[in-house]
Structure formats: structure tokens, C-alpha cells
Computed example of a mutant assay.
Amino acid sequence: MPLNQIKDIIDTGGMNESNILERRLNKLNQEIRYLRFQQKLIVEMLKGKTPTDKKMLMDSQTFISILKSTGLDDETLNYLHIQFEKNSPDSHQFFLEFLGLADEEIKHIRECCRQEERKT
């Protein structure tokens, strides 16, 4: 549990403990979804498909619509980018390039991710 949430529990005498635990549970669920996404991506890569294979190429809007159709919301998609940047910045760069994003857009996304990560 992050230190700021432990501080919240101490400051409130534990009165807000269930809310903090619910938030942590939601965060863990987001992390699990992210890890499953990574797992699927790695499995596809291990099958021998590389981003230069025509079957693997897709644009960002198609990819986003697929993710949203599985129930992911904008907050979770943003979280995916932040975690991708935090845990594997080179792979994040590669993935954004794979989606065909312009260099400036990639730079903007990655900088936003780093800024969000510094806030936590």
C-alpha cells in the first residue's frame, strides 16, 4: 500500500480504511489487466509474429477500439501507458511506433506518462 494511503489511514484513525482498501483493490485489478495485456502481447511475439508482419500491423484507433470493446475505459488505457513506460520504456516506444504514431505524438505520450508517474 502506498505511503500516502497509509498516512490517510493513520490521520483518520482508520475510519476511512475500507475506502482506501477499495481503491487499492481497484488499482490491483488495473495492474492485473495490464499484466494480462502484456502476457498476450508477448505470446503473440513468441509465436514468431513480428511488427513487420502484415497480420500484426494496425493503427492506433483500431487498437483502442478493440481495447474499449473489451471493457477498458480511458482511465485504464492511460494506466496501461503509464505502466508500460515505467516498466519497459523501450518496449513502450516500440509499441507506439508499431501503432504508426507520429514521432511528436509518441514523445508527447511518453512525457505525459513520466509526469503522471512522478505524481504517484
Rank of each mutant, 00 (worst) to 15 (best):
57 L>F: 06
11 D>T: 09
34 Y>H: 11
2 P>N: 12
21 L>F: 13
45 M>F: 11
118 R>I: 04
33 R>Q: 10
34 Y>T: 03
64 I>M: 08
75 E>H: 09
88 S>W: 13
31 E>Q: 09
56 M>G: 00
64 I>H: 03
83 Q>N: 14
88 S>F: 14
15 M>P: 00
85 E>W: 00
108 H>G: 01
115 Q>L: 15
105 E>N: 04
20 I>Q: 00
37 F>V: 00
76 T>Q: 03
83 Q>W: 12
22 E>T: 08
77 L>S: 02
97 E>V: 12
11 D>P: 03
23 R>A: 11
73 D>P: 04
34 Y>S: 01
76 T>V: 11
120 T>N: 13
115 Q>Y: 09
87 N>A: 07
9 I>H: 00
4 N>P: 01
103 D>A: 15
106 I>E: 00
31 E>C: 04
81 H>Q: 10
4 N>D: 12
10 I>W: 01
20 I>M: 00
47 K>E: 15
26 N>L: 10
116 E>I: 07
22 E>R: 13
6 I>D: 06
70 T>G: 06
5 Q>K: 15
46 L>G: 14
74 D>C: 04
113 C>E: 07
60 S>Q: 12
22 E>S: 09
55 K>S: 13
48 G>C: 10
71 G>A: 07
27 K>Q: 13
51 P>E: 08
36 R>V: 06
23 R>H: 08
13 G>S: 03
51 P>S: 06
70 T>N: 05
40 K>R: 14
52 T>R: 10
